[in-house]
């Protein structure tokens, strides 16, 4: 009796986990981006723009280059890649460029990207673009997060110089926080998320957070 009961309950639970879990777990990256960002400041000490240099993984780089003609085989100029860069920024627009600024509890809004181009370097595509802030932010503490809420794109801060302040007032300091090894973070935080069911921002667990403190 007891065995039958536990077996039956086991079946139902398993089925539940199987189907429910299967529908629930959506996030899985297909694209990896290594991000390096410059925060641009105006002479008055306000931040005016973010300049990104995003390096795509080799599989995606190859895929994106499919069918793109170049004069010299294996070498792509900025001009040859211009249409692709255009497509990239247009598509990224819908996803708010995966860049989320926050100061004094308010979200910073970005305008359309400027100065964008693609560079092909050692088998990798690097997308450069500048996101001007709609209104420059002048504050003591500012945070900038780079992540895909849906985790289709896995962002990673570059190992070397992931953040640089350009023209920032003297005394400004920055710090950054990497997702504690993406996968490990997913495991640790996943349980809490599952239990609380509250946090609706799965990808945020993989966020790369940059914080700037100014005097």
């Amino acid at each position: 009796m007891k065995r039958a009961r536990s077996r039956l309950i086991g079946w139902l639970l398993l089925a539940c986990v199987g189907v429910f879990g299967a529908t629930a777990a959506h996030a899985h990256p297909h694209v990896w981006i290594t991000s390096a960002s410059e925060l641009i400041y105006a002479p008055d000490g306000s931040m005016t723009a973010v300049r990104h240099a995003w390096t795509f993984d080799d599989m995606f780089s190859t895929y994106a280059l499919q069918g793109i003609e170049s004069k010299t085989k294996g070498v792509y100029t900025h001009e040859e890649l211009a249409p692709l860069a255009q497509t990239n920024v247009e598509s990224l627009k819908e996803f708010a460029f995966f860049t989320f600024a926050k100061a004094d509890g308010k979200k910073g809004r970005f305008l359309e990207p400027v100065d964008y181009f693609l560079e092909y370097k050692d088998g990798f595509l690097v997308l450069h673009f500048t996101l001007p802030l709609k209104t420059p932010i002048k504050t003591q503490e500012l945070s900038l997060e780079i992540f895909d809420p849906t985790f289709f794109v896995d962002f990673k801060l570059a190992d070397k110089d992931p953040v640089r302040l350009v023209g920032a007032p003297e005394g400004c300091k920055f710090g950054f926080q990497r997702p504690n090894d993406g996968a490990a973070g997913a495991q640790a935080m996943g349980e809490d998320n599952f239990l609380s069911g509250g946090n609706s921002n799965y990808g945020a667990m993989f966020a790369n957070k940059i914080t700037v403190m100014c005097p």
Binding site: A27, Q187, E191
Partner: peptide
């Protein structure tokens, strides 16, 4: 935010592990 909806919140520990393996293989 005008884009895709945020992903599902129910990412269990098992799922996190699966994701990690999957990413590795990929």
């Amino acid at each position: 935010g005008g884009g895709r909806p945020v992903s599902d919140p129910h990412a269990g520990g098992l799922i996190g592990w699966l994701l990690a393996r999957q990413s590795e293989f990929y």
